[in-house]
């Protein structure tokens, strides 16, 4: 019933310039990356989301989980009608 994703988007995530730093606690790391996310949806919907990700990853039960994610998009007026996907 989340109509923005019904039918769902087809997405491709391209990541570059990945930097990792120690986090604020021993179980956390900070990860910075640039992304290009392509979205195609329904018949001809096409969006490019380009920007930076600032993540805090936490090691929980043997796996890395996203504790926090800040996304900075390189568009002033967003040209996509919505942002209904994960970065």
């Amino acid at each position: 019933m989340a109509w923005a994703e019904d039918p769902p988007s087809r997405t491709r995530h391209l990541l570059r310039n990945i930097e990792v730093e120690p986090g604020d606690t021993a179980s956390e790391i900070k990860v910075y990356a640039n992304f290009l996310v392509y979205r195609n949806r329904a018949e001809m919907e096409q969006d490019f989301y380009i920007g930076a990700r600032q993540d805090v990853l936490r090691h929980v039960d043997g796996a890395w989980k996203i504790a926090r994610r800040k996304v900075i998009l390189d568009q002033n007026v967003l040209l996509a009608k919505n942002v209904s996907i994960f970065f």
Partner: peptide
């Protein structure tokens, strides 16, 4: 555009 309520409105109006 990223709001969980409003993003569905855009789909309808579109």
């Amino acid at each position: 555009p990223g709001g969980l309520t409003e993003q569905d409105d855009m789909e309808n109006w579109n």
